[in-house]
Design a protein around this nucleic acid. Sequence first.
DNA 1: TTTATTAGTGTTAAAATTTCACTTCTAAAA
DNA 2: TTTTAGAAGTGAAATTTTAACACTAATAAA
Lengths: 228, 228
Amino acid sequence: MENYQDQDKILLAVDCIIFGFDKKNLKILLIKRDFEPERGRWSLMGGFLKKDENLDEAADRVLNHLTGLHDVYMEQLRSYSAVDRDPMERTISVAYYALINANEAEAELNEDFSAKWFNIHEAPNLIFDHNTMVNNAMARLRRRALTKPIGFELLPKKFTMKQLQTLYEAILDEKLDKRNFINKINALDILLKTEEKDMKSSRKGSFLYMFDEVKYNKKVKEGFAFKL
Amino acid sequence: MENYQDQDKILLAVDCIIFGFDKKNLKILLIKRDFEPERGRWSLMGGFLKKDENLDEAADRVLNHLTGLHDVYMEQLRSYSAVDRDPMERTISVAYYALINANEAEAELNEDFSAKWFNIHEAPNLIFDHNTMVNNAMARLRRRALTKPIGFELLPKKFTMKQLQTLYEAILDEKLDKRNFINKINALDILLKTEEKDMKSSRKGSFLYMFDEVKYNKKVKEGFAFKL
DNA sequence: TTTATTAGTGTTAAAATTTCACTTCTAAAA
DNA sequence: TTTTAGAAGTGAAATTTTAACACTAATAAA
C-alpha cells in the first residue's frame, strides 16, 4: 500500500442484468445502444459510478433510469476488469442482477433506450463482456433461487402454484415433478393461500397464493432456512 | 450511459484475505500498518489497481508483494464501496481471498509489512470494512470447500487423512465423523495414496496422500462434481 | 514384554428424495 | 341438461443418501 496521490484513477461502471418472467419464460431486458462505442448493438443497461454514491445506489439509479422502478431485488454479482474490455477507455464494471415483475415494468420503460425483453435463450450477442455477465448472473440466480425466496420477486403478488413451478423450471432449466414441487413448497409453510382462484388457465380454476414475507422473516429469525 | 469524459474517476484497491492452515487452525495473514490512515492498526494486505492490469493481476501482485508467492489459489470475493469506507479518499475495494500453504510462505514473508498470522477466531479488529471482508471470505470459503477441491491448497503436497479432516473441521467450524469423512473422501476417488507414512503423529504412523489433480480434471470433464 | 496412542475399517438406522396415477372440478360444447 | 375436455389437486412406496456408531491393528517407547 503506497500513498494515495500517485495512484491511477479509473472509470467504474455498473451493468445490470435485469431478469423478468412472463408466465412462461425467463427473460432479460436489453438496450439497443444509440451511442458509441458499439452503437446499434445490444447491451446491458449500465452507467458510471458517481463520487457520492456507493455501488448499490448506482445500480439502483441505473435500473430506475430504464424501468422507472425502485425497491427492486438486486444483488451484486462481481467485477469485470479486463484491461481492454471497453475499447473506448479503461473501465471496470461491477455487474448487478435484478429481479423484476416484467409486467409492472413494461408500462414504465424509458423509451430513450430502445429496450426490449429477450427470452433468456434467445438473447442476441452482447457488447464487451456482457455475455459473460449474463451467464454468471444466470448461474448465481439458479443457486440463489434454491436457498432464498427470491422467485417471488419475478411473479405478481398473487400467483398459482403452477406459475411458481413454471418459474422455477425456467430458472433451473429443468422439468420438476408437480407433486414433489407442491409438497416442498407447502412444507416450507411460507405461502398464504387466498380464497381467490385464477380461472384463466383451466376450467377448474386454481387457487392464488401470496408469499407471506412477515411469516418468512419470523421463521428465519427462529433458524429456518429456505431450501428447495 | 452517458459520455465517458464527464464521469468521475475513482481509486480502485484490492484487498487480500489470505488464509493459511498450520496443522490445526485456520489462520489469516494480517499486516500492521506503518502508514496513514490508521497507522499502527491491523489490516488486510492491499494495494491499488494500476491502469495496465486487471483485478486478478493486481491481487496476485499484492499477494506476491507480501508473501513472495505466485500461482496461488485466489478468488474474487466482491466489491466494497461505501462512500466513506476510506477516510482518506474515496476508494472502492475489490476483495480477493487466497489459500496458501502457511509453511511455505512463512520463510518468504516480506518483513516490511510486519505481517503476522492470526488464528481466524483470534484476529484483532481491522481497519475500515476489513472485518466484513474477512467474514464474507469465510462464508465463501466454507461454501466453496464443499463443492471444489480447494482444501488441498492449504495443505502440503503430501498429507494424512487426519490432517485433511482437521482442515475441513477448521473451515467448517464443526467436528466431523472420522469414518464418514474418510469414506466420503475415498468415494470421490481423487486422492493418490503414497507408500510413505507420517510417523510424527502416532506410533503406528499414517499414510500420506496426494491430491491427484490430473485424475480430478479428467473426472470433471466426464461430468463428475466434487461434493463433500 | 507391556503399554499407550493413533490409524484404519463397515454396518445399520434414519432421513431425504424420487417416482408414480387417479379423482375433482368447472366451463364449454353437444 | 348432459357430456366432454383439460388442468388442478392429492399421498404412499421405493430408493438413495446421510448419520451414528466401536472395535482391531500397528508401532514406538517404557
